[in-house]
Amino acid sequence: MRTIPQQREGRLLLVPLVTFLLVFLSFPALVDIVYALSDVTFQTMRAPELVGLRNFGTVLADPEFWSACWFSLRFGGLTAFIECALGLALAIFLSPIVCRYGWTIAILMLPMMVAPSMVGLMYRLVLHEFAGPLPYYLTLWSGTSPAFLDAGHAFWTLVVVEVLQWTPFAFLLFHVAYISISSEIREAAAMDKAGAWRILWRIELPMMKATIAIALGIRFIDGFRVFDNVFTLTGAGAGGSTTSLSIYIYQSFFKGGQIGQAVAASALLFFTSLIVLYAGGMLKSYRERRRVAA
């Protein structure tokens, strides 16, 4: 039981945090709500004209918005899946080496240390037909080199670039989860004549389930909101073919000057994320309750 002075002290200590949240989160959120409901340009930012839900309607009726959503969903889903699959494989198969030579982790982590926009610029050079090493050697060996960044291949090139940069992140999570599994469990399973594959499928992977779910979630969110490397590598792409949702919002805001629509699109993204996260939480609670009941 806390005393009244303790409660007062607690409230007092919360004041800086609450003030910070009010100033730095509530005010921008409020401005965003006003702008999302207004007809506003750079010239009228201080005098927006309220237009109700018109911006939301315009965004929802815009085929480019849906095309950007589809790009982000595909990109986020694919990259998250491939990164986690590769990261898991590496964590398991390289585990003996990494455990023995800890410094190898530093080398494996290197791609993560580079800013995504720099990665985009780097690949612009690496993939350039006349300056890049990859097209050079491909032409040398096979007489030709594919167009890595044309409308047909740009999406897959971007996926590969993203996977190469962020697989180490998934690897790190899985490595920590993998080495956390007690060796006694593995020894006990081995004594019961369980083979390596059986131990992996029946013991290790189930024990890493939570980490796998978290890694998939984090990588999906990161892939879904991709901006920097795509923007520096292909921009919006030929005919807008590599326009992610973040690029769509950026272009509507700065290039198109349609501030209301851009903010409405970001608000839609925010509410959708909130619903998905809430639904995920509800599903988890439901399954937990069923498990306990069983």
């Binding site: 612009r124 350039h128 037909e129 594919p146 167009a147 044309d150």
Partner: peptide, 18 residues
């Protein structure tokens, strides 16, 4: 070049000096 749909000022210069 096949990748011209991703070319701008610097890519053009790089192609030229090659």
């Amino acid at each position: 070049p096949k990748d011209s749909l991703s070319y701008e000022y610097p890519e053009t210069n790089a192609a030229w000096v090659s």
